[in-house]
Every structure is written in C-alpha cells, then in structure tokens.
C-alpha cells in the first residue's frame, strides 16, 4: 500500500482569502493562502483582533470577491469576544454569498482557557469542520491569541520551556493538518516582547537570535519582537507584524483620519499603523501603512519613500 502519493503541483489549492481591503491585499499578493498558518503579531492595540474580525466576514464572501464562501471558527483567549465591533463591521462588509443570509450564523466562537484546552478543542473541531452545522463549510480558523495562553502557564526553566515547545509543535502540527485537510486558512495572533540588552547596530549578537528581519521591528517607540521565542517562530509559515506609533503632527490634514485627540487645529496626535511582512515563503519583505476606522481596517498608499 502506498501511504502518500506524489501530487501534481497544478492540483494544489492556491485560493486566497482577502484581507478585505485592496491595498492590504496587494501587500500580501491577494490575501492569506489556504493550507498554511499565518501569524499576526503586534502589541496590544495594534489591530490584530480588528483584522481577525474583518477576516471572519471576508471569509463569507463568494470566491469572486476574494472570499471562500465559508464559515469560520474563532477561538479566543484574551478578552470577551468583541461582538459589538463585529456587528459594527457588518454593514460595510461586501455582500456575502447567498447561503449566508445572516452572516453571524456562520461565525462559531469558542473560548480557550489553557494550551491543553486549546489542543483538545482543535481535536474536537475536526468533527465540526467535517460536518459543519451551517450550510457553509468551515474554512477559516482563528486563534486569538496563542500568546495569551502560553505566556502565563510556563516557568522560565529548561524543563518547562521544553514542555512548552513540544506543545507548540503539537498544536502547530494540528493546525497545519487542518489547514491542509480542509483547505482552510489558519490565522493565529501573537503578542510582542521587548528586546533588551542588544545594541541597535548588532541585531545578530549571540544573545539575541534574529528571526526574519526583526532587527527592525519597532512599535510605540520600543524595539520589540514577537513573543513565544524561536521554537514558535518555527511553527508558522507566514509572519505578519502590526505596529503602531503615536506621533504629533501640526496639520489639519491629519484630521481626515478621524483619530485625533484634539480638534483645535493646532496639535494633533495621530496613530501611524504599519503592517509588515516579516517572513513568508511567497512574499518579499515589505510593509504598508494602514488605518482603523469605523468601517474596518484599511491600507493607506503612501507617497513617502520606504526606508
């Protein structure tokens, strides 16, 4: 018996899930690929959950509009599920496919409380995905966030770290298997940690291990890197970094972004947000600015030269 047969590359699924904005889609060449695990890393308030919610609605779109005509499973571990924000995004989301008259019927939400809980949940999710209760197949899996589960449970001892990374690989293997079996898009979010004790010029000194181009990741004026260390970085296919920085600009122009603290026309605090591809098998390192407005997350095309 032949256990696994070679496949023709032409038969592999190449579908992509739109991020819900053409500018951001351009950054990731059409969207997030099915069959692989994409990580969104960023500090709190960077827009990870916002983007995830947008993806839940994007998945419902028909393939012609960049969607998957699919339901989604959202596993959250951080705060209560932001239902109101999702409702708020609903009107602006593109028309979903005919089967989905009520989009919220096709978003399954489940909290996870510990890494082991997450693993058993994923194992149980096989049944849900194989026989979806709604009319649509489940083809988007979001874990928001993986870091919250892991950062509290383990000590900083060799034995505990080993146990932790073994669990990483177990969970990642399960996620990848599901991505592959069901042609699903898997998105996990990650937090960041500060990078300390490394001189700026030498990102590759022996004490700091550089993953991707993270020598240059800054958020809120701090040098940061995605949490959970090297072994988790080995577990994801694509890593996307979201950052924010507040800057004071003296212009009326900034007002149009609607995120000002001060409407006196003199000084305005504006949040600049950036989405950055850290590593991906199919994408070059690149970045794009974006804004979060009432209608969702949108990329901004800048005239400024990239540095």
């Amino acid at each position: 018996m032949i256990p696994v047969k070679p496949e023709k590359l032409f038969n592999l699924p190449t579908q992509k899930l739109t991020l819900g904005c053409p500018v951001l889609d351009r950054l990731v060449r059409g969207g997030l690929p099915v069959g692989s695990v994409t990580e969104l890393a960023g500090e709190s308030g960077a827009g990870k959950t916002q983007l995830c919610l947008q993806l839940l609605l994007a998945a419902l779109r028909p393939p012609a509009l960049g969607g998957l005509s699919a339901a989604s499973l959202y596993i959250h571990s951080e705060f209560p599920f932001p239902l109101r924000r999702l409702l708020c995004l609903l009107p602006s989301s593109a028309p979903s496919s005919a089967a989905a008259l009520n989009p919220l019927d096709h978003v399954f939400v489940r909290p996870a409380h510990s890494p082991d809980d997450l693993f058993s949940l994923l194992a149980a999710a096989d049944a849900l995905i194989a026989r979806p209760p709604s009319a649509l197949p489940v083809r988007l899996l979001v874990v928001d966030s993986i870091a919250a589960l892991f950062r509290s449970e383990f000590d900083n001892t060799p034995a505990d770290l080993k146990r932790r990374s073994s669990l990483f690989f177990k969970i990642a293997a399960k996620l990848k298997e599901q991505a592959r079996r069901f042609g699903a898009v898997v998105v996990v979010t990650n937090q960041v940690v500060d990078v300390v004790g490394v001189s700026e010029s030498d990102g590759s000194s022996s004490s700091a291990i550089r993953v991707g181009n993270y020598g240059s990741l800054w958020s809120s004026g701090r040098r940061v890197c995605p949490a959970l260390g090297l072994s988790w970085a080995n577990c994801v296919n694509t890593r996307i970094f979201l950052s924010r920085s507040d800057e004071i600009v003296r212009s009326e122009r900034a007002l149009e972004f609607g995120e000002s603290d001060d409407r006196d026309d003199r000084t305005v605090v504006r949040t600049r947000r950036k989405m950055e591809v850290v590593f991906a098998p199919h994408l070059p390192e690149a970045s794009c600015e974006f804004v979060i407005v009432r209608e969702g997350v949108f990329g901004v095309e800048t005239q400024r030269p990239q540095n």
Binding site: P3, V4, K5, P6, E7, K8, L9, F10, L12, A173, K176, E177, R180, R181
Partner: peptide
C-alpha cells in the same frame, strides 16, 4: 518545470 517536481505533503512523522 512545475510538472517535474513530485510533491509530497505529509502531516506526521509516521507519514
């Protein structure tokens, strides 16, 4: 070129 790559996707160490 693509036709001459035999691709195996495997999901466990036993595979």
């Amino acid at each position: 070129f693509l036709a001459n790559i035999f691709y195996f996707r495997i999901c466990s160490y036993t595979e």
